[in-house]
Design a protein around this nucleic acid. Sequence first.
RNA 1: GCCGGGGUAGCCGAGCGGCCAAAGGCGGCAGACUCAAGAUCUGCUCUCGCAGGAGUACCCAGGUUCAAAUCCUGGCCCCGGCACCA
Length: 965
Amino acid sequence: MDPSRDAHWQEAWAGAGLSRGRRVPGHRKFYALVAYPGPSGFLHVGHLRGYAYADPLHRYHRMRGEEVLFPFGVHASGLPAVTWSRKLQNGDPSILEALSERGIDAAARARLEDPEEAARFLGREYLRVFRRFGALIDESTFLTTVDEDYRAFIRWQFHTLHAAGALVRASYFSSVCPVCGPVAVDPSETDLQSGGDAEIVKFTTVPFRLDDGRILLAATLRPETVFGVTNVWVAPDEMLVVWHHDSGAYLMARPGAERMVEQHGGHLGHEVPVASLRGRQVHVPLRDTRVPILESAVVDPGIGTGIVMSVPAHAPADFAAIGALSGAERARLGAPPVLLEIDANEALSSSEEALRAGEGLPAERALRAVGATSLAEGDAVQEATERLYRLEFVRGRMTVPALKGVPVRRAREQVASQLLPLGGSFELQEFTKPVICRNGHTVVIRRVPEQWFLHYSDPDWKAETKELASRITTWPSEYGRELPSILDWFGDRPSTRRGAWLGTRFPLDPEWIIEPIADSTFYMAYFVVRRFVRDGRLKVDDLSDAFFDFVFRGQGSGDPAVDRGVQEEVREEFRYWYPLDFNIGGKEHKRVHFPVFLYTHVRLVPPELQPRGIFVHGWITGPAGAKISKKEVSSKGGKIPSTDRAMEEWGPDPIRLYFLLAASPSQDFQFEATHVDAARSRLGDIERLVREAIGDAAGPPELDAWLESATHDWVRRAHAAFEATDLRRAAEIVYVEVPALLRRYYTRGGSPGRATDRLVRAWNLFLSPITPHLAEEVGVGRFSSLVARALLPAADTFASSPAAEARESYLDQVEEDLRAVQRASEGRGEGSAGELIFYVADPWKATLESWLRDEVDRKEPPSVRDIMTRVKDHPELVAHRGEIPKYVERVGASLRSEPPREGPEIDEVATLRAAEGYLVRRFGFRSVTVHRESEAAEHDPKGRRDRARPGRPAFYLVGRPAPGA
RNA sequence: GCCGGGGUAGCCGAGCGGCCAAAGGCGGCAGACUCAAGAUCUGCUCUCGCAGGAGUACCCAGGUUCAAAUCCUGGCCCCGGCACCA
């Protein structure tokens, strides 16, 4: 079809007001949306996937006569728009290019340096793209989460949640740039220059007291190994610093001390050179013993506190460091104690076994396993450390008297809690690698006191949410099974933060801004109200708590200052569209957005208004399943085209069809331009088939009956697939099966006429949900108004004829057999056959096979003996008793793996005779003749007629010599 | 580590106990059409074949079953999430 026509139909839909959701009392409704996107930049085709499912669902329901609502907004909260604006401000070339392509002049561009403006701009841009994609979005709902009316809504939501006891306060660790404010540390590096893949490690600090009362504060990941400490390491020639906290004074390296201040307060004091500690001893906590302070390069002063407790038996690095000491020093330390053992009953993997080979301390053996001998082999020592730690953590049990038999993972917690009352034991968090913010500052982890949390760990709230999760429909259903464990794992979440973020000020404390995940959990309800604001029937000032209490919860009588009638109308509107039928989103929402969406609805509305469904789709990936990178989306060489480029290249319908057919919605798949080409050419075929099928002449009655019946069947199945939101199945039926059916009808000798016309009318309508532009284009002249608002036919519009369908599948089977034989004879170079003679099985064989089938159903092996006993009493079969044993042998075994024959009996002879002309044409035979087995003796030179089975006629291909032979 | 998802023909991907040598597409081969190329259409695309069949196959190794790509056990490998990132 002509791609320039796409816009024509989009305007026609808009002109007809199709996208506008209307409340029609008494009509069924369908309300679904795609989880709104953040304004992080321009879109590529991958972003359209959710809409490729959402729009067909809406269109399907519209064509069932339901009222539908498909809203859209932009989740401007948080950093994405801020980051985008900053990039624009810094002259990011790809943004500048995209803007100039869209005709944005310098003045308009300058306005976009304001993040809120940028969010609105990108939102309108997304709307334009979705319109171009053919999605019928109700644009009167369009909002961003930084609009004042939305903020009023969010303030109400938080007042209400607070009143319901859903908010609590506690301290919290947050990644923050000391200059720019909070940042998200994640691999996408939206907020960062580098270090997005850093992980957070949590050290426990352990105090080692000097005789003078000062404390060396070591940091460890394995507090339980305090029982194996032989000495304390410090970095040679370093400077330590005193950290004052409460009444304590702790010595440690400066970087760690600074982290301690961030995370636990206090302040730093004077410096102390390591050299001044030389030769001194410290007391080991939880043990009545003293160990020496030693210097070693094993210590990196940047990690932890720069003070390391040495556990040579279990830490390969410590063992290696001891090896570098002088003999005298080593002698002073004595034999390092072994603290734990690996359960001998545990089955170990071969790599784990390797760690334990040979003699010596565990650390010694681990070093041997990786082939390291000295501290200089850093990577190998590191590997030994990681492998040994993992093994001991997962499989080890303590052997020290105080903790005998306790699994290491439990001992770790126990020791940590024993250390706590001693003072000086803190949690110290740090990144595994430097994290640098967008503006070049080093990101730190800071403790935020009095952070507001949403109290998702509340057992009652959680239980109610799990109950809701068990009621909703999920696609795929696996997600429904995952949800309970996700909800179990779900803990309290910070709901506010400070910094340069977009969002709504927290009404209970305007110092804080509501956190982006928390302000996007109930917005489905607000879309309904938004339309009234947009139409000017409500003003921002009208959106008071009293108003929302009434509209969403039916509490009170609304805001006295607002027109009563309008409030009641909004309430009605909300009651009409709610509950939400589907929340559609990518799999990234599985553990964050969808759970909080359920949680919030549980708190705010009664069960009958709580969500009905969640639809999760996978991602479009780059090669090898990797996440799409920036390079791949880049305008030139990128494999993933921008939305506009894709629309120009293919138009919306091929992409929509490609998305539906390429993979199951829940799976990730790689974008392949050649596959979109294929979808486009498939649509070309379909267009031709639809256009050619017009006519009103009757075809062969049996063929027409079959086509009619097959149509009954696919229409029924297509409805079932859409109703079950099995969109891929629906697409398969409409775009693969139906064209194949029509082609088969022609091959079988049908031609365009009344029968194809009827089929194609239904087909044309079914093309509309997924490829709406094509459906309109080919529907011109066939339908008086837009296809998009016509009603889909019911299956019963078409007469079902099991007999006609049985005849066709019989013929299918016959053709399959013929082809198998032809293949074999062609392999011998015999060329194609000239004559075809059929022998149709005698009726007694059907009786016999039904007996065999009985035995199979009873799970008995077919037995000649049993059959022969039954034959005795059966006059019809007695006559054939000579042939029966052979037949049972031949057919009995294969019957087991054949499906039972279903459907009505057919007249094989008549069916084959009716198909004579077809078979001649199809296979190029000179002639086709059909005999009953019992009457075929003189026409069966090769004795093939015995092979005939009910439903599988025997045949003889009278060979014709190959040309030239 | 924990929690998910996966490993299917040259490639992308359906299937998830018997109708499976495995949908659909891409790529490849052959034929039709064309002066030719492209586009389009038709057929083929694991191996063998003594006529509708046999053999080998769905990561590997075992097991359950009359029957396994599909169920179970154990390996190996890949991908994602792990907390504020929507």
